[in-house]
Amino acid sequence: MSLVGSTGREKKHRFQFPYRWKRELTGWLFVLPTTFFVSLFGVGAILYVLYLSFLQWNLIDPVKKWVGFHNYQLILQDSSFWQSVFRTLLYLIGTTGITVPFALFIAVCMNKTFHGVRLFRTIFFMPYVVPTVASAVVWFRFFSSSDGLMNAIFRLFGLPPQGWLSNYHEALWVIVLLYVWQFTGYFAILFLHGLQNVPDSLYEAAAVDGSTPFLIFWKITLPMISPTTFFVVTVSFIFSFLSFDQIYVLTEGGPADSTTTLVYDLFEQGFEFFHIGIASAMSIFLFLFLLGLTYLQFRGESKWVHHQM
């Protein structure tokens, strides 16, 4: 590297920065735009939201009252907050519990190359590319309680028509189903990538030993793709934790708050009731939860995941 300092093309009489200075200056100039935006809208915004969480303020009032940890107290004592935490966890487990095994199954089916595998991959991946709002339109038609296709099919089989999106107990699961349709293909592609990295020699060795396909899957495939599985589960947790579009378009948190998750609650507090302090305190909760999840991923990965040597 030090070679470069002495071989500048520049003419002698022009002023030259020492090479180190120049390198420093170039480096900082290059990272300046990204660092500026990222600090302002990322790290800076987190600090700002922390400050707001200590205030009582309604967005319009010129007076911002400092209330210390009062907002946090309010939230922790509020039973509806805990209900939305509970619903978020239910949604998290519902979406991930269905989507991830399903995606793995599809990936295993697609792992062998056969005619049309690329077409299938395209079809499974397509729902992920389409905006959630667009998919929600179809879901409306499917699960409308009055004239939806689902109820029409139910009637055909002599089953009682359901309320779906307008039923307190069913609405959340209709949204879970939309999530499954949207993300299974995406996760299947991640799994497929993991499956293709399993060395063939392992399968060949198992075949020589006369293992059953089930045993091969259980003892070779599953341990070998555990890094992918871990990653997919974490991503699915984060995606469903942050789900908003589905809920806003399909139910607006209803009926009777039965689909109000943490993020939706946060949105309502902030932009419908203008409780900026409370909404900010909830944002901090959300952030801590995500940090916890990321930490668990780091910890868990070293503990549970089999890394190939």
Partner: peptide, 13 residues
């Protein structure tokens, strides 16, 4: 650090 901050956390500020 920024990678771990989603828009749903920072939309108010």
């Amino acid at each position: 650090v920024t990678l771990m901050i989603p828009g749903q956390v920072t939309f108010i500020p």
